[in-house]
Write a protein that binds this DNA or RNA. Structure first.
Lengths: 203, 203
DNA sequence: TGTAAAATAGCACGACCGGTCGTAACAATG
DNA sequence: CATTGTTACGACCGGTCGTGCTATTTTACA
């Protein structure tokens, strides 16, 4: 019982550090100090650095589900729900109380040339996320909010580009217009796939 | 004279390591070993880790200028030149002989929550790069290849999103369709800003 | 309340980190 | 030829890394 509470604390502080410093920036020593625990006490919870990293990524995904996905799911199915999700997705990390940026986005660039379990885990999370996006876009297509021949995969790919560009311009360049740029891009993407005349249809 | 040759070697090996492991993954010890030099011998060239990182980022920019910008500049001014640049930009790092991905793109996500000279240097490089993009887009507008009321800043912002999404899908997800997705997105962006009817004009 | 089990602390390890030291070979310059 | 500055070496600094092993404390339950 006590163990569970301690684990919560560790994941909490670990996720904060992860969002700021990235996977390689989270160290056992610093995390133990932040959680008021000895390094070996911490080590007993996660039997390796690798397992800690996986647990932290899962915690990030759990938080995103709670703060981004679930609230968006109350919106009406179709385009409104997709828009609600994007609304909560862009810049979700600070809004969820994290001091840094989206840990998964950062991991995409930190681990792109690595191998191993952690990379595979990030890949799985990212595939699941894109699958969620695909299902929302597909619903919008099925309900007639988007052109019936919309290339769903392409739509999701470009939406991810908007998210990454927003992350870079908001967090790194600290551009106050980042939100406006992202919405402008998203609206243009919607316009493209909504109007039959200039559609994005597959041949 | 000998000093210069050694420095070239160090930058060469350092840039390779940078593209794979990121800034924090480049260590003095490993770089010295890769360049067959003692750690203190290496230290005589760069008087701190920070200065090494700045030098490596400059080297990456220099390489990009030679492999991406200069070859593209021979294309006719306007849209052809812009297209030529994008052609060489997407996936330029491996094409330039680097074993990993674009060091600057990775740095955007590695340093987004840090402070200091290195971050400022990356910010400068990124600002310069976007300025180059802006000038090419503006030329395409001036020559009538794009709608006269094109929002140049927005165009560049979305183009950067395409680059980042391409980086993520090509390098992390290892999606073979990454190139096709990026070109599809770029073409759609061009179509949007070329056709007066569905333009992206500022009000 | 006694006791087994779980949770945490203490300590040590080998490796590596960025960085400094004194020193020596070498080049260029006066 | 003497001097000076650069380049490189090897040893070493205090610290931190991830990870074991062994106590000791704390908790949960009979």
């Amino acid at each position: 019982m006590k163990s569970h509470a301690t684990r919560i604390t560790l994941l909490h502080h670990g996720l904060r550090a992860l969002s700021v410093d990235g996977l390689s920036g989270v160290t056992l020593g610093r995390l133990a100090e932040a959680a008021n625990l000895s390094k070996s006490g911490l080590f007993a919870h996660f039997r390796s650095k690798e397992q800690l990293e996986v647990a932290l990524l899962d915690e990030a995904a759990r938080l995103a589900r709670a703060q981004v996905v679930e609230p968006a799911m109350v919106a009406p199915d179709g385009l409104p729900r997709l828009r609600a999700l994007v609304e909560r997705w862009l810049g979700w990390a600070p809004r969820a109380g994290l001091p840094g940026g989206c840990p998964v986005a950062a991991a995409l660039f930190e681990l792109d040339d690595s191998e191993g379990r952690v990379r595979e885990h990030v890949a799985m999370l990212e595939r699941e996320w894109r699958e969620l996006l695909r299902s929302l876009v597909a619903s919008a297509v099925a309900l007639g909010d988007l052109h019936p021949e919309t290339d769903v995969e392409q739509f999701v790919w470009e939406l991810c580009g908007i998210y990454l560009s927003h992350h870079a311009s908001a967090r790194f360049l600290r551009d106050p217009a980042a939100d406006a740029r992202a919405w402008h891009a998203f609206d243009a993407l919607l316009r493209r796939t909504a109007m039959p005349g200039t559609s994005d249809a597959v041949q």
